[in-house]
């Protein structure tokens, strides 16, 4: 913990930065009280997020209890390397988010914005890995191969070899759409339903979190600078949301990829 080394100044156009001119809502007594209220409100919202995902975790537990083999089987289709990589990506993004707040608190606008961008990139990377490496191959049988090593080979390819097709690999779809022919457990469709719903709901939250961070990034642009040592409520809120998304993944990852 350190003290705030804040030097007031004007930004371009001779205007005071947003965090300087910010006035709290009139029904609060002080800026701090507003900050506190927003934080408590956000934590209440995060509690609802936890309980939203509680449904997924209860689903997991109950059906794992009922069909242990289907779940063990299903889990073994997942590659822990992608799950692990995504965990690392999210953890790093959580760190950069926390650092972004730290920089705003010290009024290091440039570094703070850079950290926000890294967070956004990590979020996008997470979703990309999820889609290209997990969802699309499992659903359709089309593998993503950036090395394009299958171009010109036996396998069907698309986009100049960026994707290649593997017969019989796809079809691992949720519910009635399930069409994977080599399933060995009669309840394997239940596993895939859970997998897509759980990770899909989580991915949706990643996207929402990215939107919140992008909003913060936009309003912290030079010439506006809405966030700084005296006022960084918005960053803090987006950060809390981003961390809860990370938190849920911390549990989803071992449950889906590691427990067998």
């Amino acid at each position: 913990m350190s003290t705030i080394d804040f030097k007031p100044g004007l930004i371009q156009g001779g205007r005071a930065p947003g965090y300087e001119t910010y006035k709290h809502a009139s029904h609060f007594r002080t800026k701090d009280e507003e900050f506190d209220a927003c934080k408590t409100g956000m934590w209440l919202f995060l509690a609802t997020e936890v309980l939203l995902f509680a449904g997924i975790f209860v689903w997991y537990s109950i059906y794992r209890m009922m069909y242990p083999d289907a779940f063990r089987n299903g889990s073994s289709y997942l590659d822990w390397r992608w799950g692990g990589l995504n965990t690392v990506v999210l953890l790093i993004s959580s760190y950069t988010m926390a650092m972004s707040i730290n920089h705003f608190q010290h009024n290091r606008q440039k570094e703070a914005r850079r950290n926000l961008v890294i967070t956004l990139v990590c979020g996008a990377l997470f979703v990309a890995i999820k889609l290209l490496m997990e969802y699309i191959p499992k659903m359709t049988g089309w593998h993503f191969d950036p090395t394009m090593s299958h171009a010109g080979g036996e396998a069907l390819t698309k986009f100049g070899g960026l994707f290649y097709f593997e017969q019989g690999y796809g079809g691992k779809l949720p519910g009635i759409l399930f069409s994977y022919p080599f399933a060995t457990d009669p309840h394997e469709n239940m596993w895939w339903s859970l997998y897509y719903t759980g990770t899909g709901l989580h991915a949706a939250h990643v996207l929402i979190g990215m939107a919140l961070i992008a909003r913060v990034w936009w309003f912290s642009r030079p010439g506006v600078e809405n966030y700084g040592p005296k006022h960084y409520t918005g960053v803090e809120m987006a950060g809390l949301y981003w961390h809860i998304v990370d938190l849920i993944w911390i549990f989803l990852f071992p449950l889906l990829y590691l427990i067998h």
Binding site: N73, S76, F182, P186
Partner: peptide, 29 residues
């Protein structure tokens, strides 16, 4: 096809044939 698929893609290989009663032990993956 099944043998080929399972042979080449070890990570995605389902090791466990269906059973109703077994549980309590971890499965190799």
């Amino acid at each position: 096809m099944k043998a080929e698929l399972f042979h080449h893609r070890q990570n995605y290989h389902p090791r466990v044939e269906h059973s109703v009663s077994t549980s309590g032990t971890s499965r190799p993956r």
